[in-house]
Design a protein around this nucleic acid. Structure first.
Lengths: 200, 200
DNA sequence: TGATACAGTATCGACTCGAAACTAATATCT
DNA sequence: AGATATTAGTTTCGAGTCGATACTGTATCA
């Protein structure tokens, strides 16, 4: 009976709590709750398929009703903008307003984390990322949730040429930077070839 | 400019959110909020120095006022018991009641996590634990928070003989199991000899 | 053309949470 | 010893979260 998984859970929860406290501090001046700051951070990183209330609710673990409330607040404060999807007019699309963008640049909610990881070698971080990503994937598979990842590692990702990419699911061409954003259509590549393997 | 730390942060936050959702589900029957379940889980793991409202508030990232509220609720529901400290009568000590213990055994809030980590090799988990622990330590050092760890790795920990231990800070003898519980007096050993080193 | 599914909104009530004021016990300083 | 400061915890207040439920409008499918 190994206790390591439990210790890992404690660390993840504790670091999560600390970051939530950090987000609380970041949003204090603007009277924003942690979840609002987190929503803005997500929006800054979400790709074109993932900037909807539904995707955000899924990512943040909220119901759509709750999400709707938070978005209302962020809209009132002028930190986000909403616009309708052309093809499906039920769908609301979201983007950071310039004020929202400026807010994130000013308060730097993730600065404390970057500081805290400054002395850890990139390789150890990559190993930790790999283990946690696998945990997340299994977790989601067990609970039928969306995995949320970037194109690299997604089964729908296609490389057309040196610098041209494409999402096989949606059929769109993707720019280089776009392939590094968060997507809620992400699906783990088949288990045939594991990309990231620790030396252990 | 490496993006790995940011990806690691995303994973930690997302897994944290999922576990919060899991705690919500676990407490739904008893009308408990996630933070209440988390408090019970903490209490089940805290050592004799760390079962106070203050330590819990610190661990969960709440103010003492908020913590007091949650403890009131848990007490009303009969899930915890409070008693006074003998030496310092300002201090309230907490323990799980048998009902609280039974509750944790029934709902198994951490089961989903254990399932999600089942296929990850112990060594990879240990490496991830090591990296996250270092992140946590640095984070706390930057923000003057308590680190919260178990005896192994703590500078106050003393081994008297094969199966006899002692906390050098408090002066108490400790049983073997007790040395594996969470302590908020934990202090990282001096950086002279790093215990856990990844091969990277 | 109707039935059904889906994206998002509105409303309600229980509860969280920080801030600040408060009580009581202990520590510190002369 | 007595005054003062510090500390552990409680209480109160108000803004806001959050899930549940009911609702609106759009799309899909037979």
């Amino acid at each position: 009976m190994d206790k390591s998984p439990q210790v890992l859970l404690e660390l993840v929860e504790r670091l999560g709590n600390l970051m939530r406290a950090e987000f609380r501090r970041a949003g204090a001046d603007e009277q924003l709750q942690p979840v609002h700051v987190h929503a803005l951070v997500y929006l800054a990183r979400a790709n074109r398929y993932s900037n909807t209330p539904q995707a955000m609710a899924e990512y943040l673990g909220l119901t759509k009703g709750t999400m709707s409330q938070s978005l209302l607040l962020l809209d009132r404060r002028g930190l986000i903008e909403r616009y309708q999807d052309d093809l499906d007019r039920r769908v609301v699309r979201l983007r950071l307003s310039s004020a929202g963008d400026q807010f994130l640049n000013e308060v730097q909610p993730q600065l404390a984390w970057q500081q805290a990881t400054r002395n850890i070698s990139p390789n150890r971080i990559r190993n930790a990322v790999s283990a946690l990503r696998e945990t997340l994937t299994t977790f989601q598979a067990d609970n039928e949730g969306q995995p949320f990842g970037a194109c690299h590692g997604c089964r729908h990702f296609e490389r057309l040429s040196a610098r041209a990419y494409r999402c096989g699911l949606m059929g769109d061409r993707l720019s280089g930077p776009e392939t590094r954003r968060i997507c809620w259509l992400y699906e783990e590549k088949g288990s045939g070839a594991e990309e990231e393997e620790d030396e252990d």
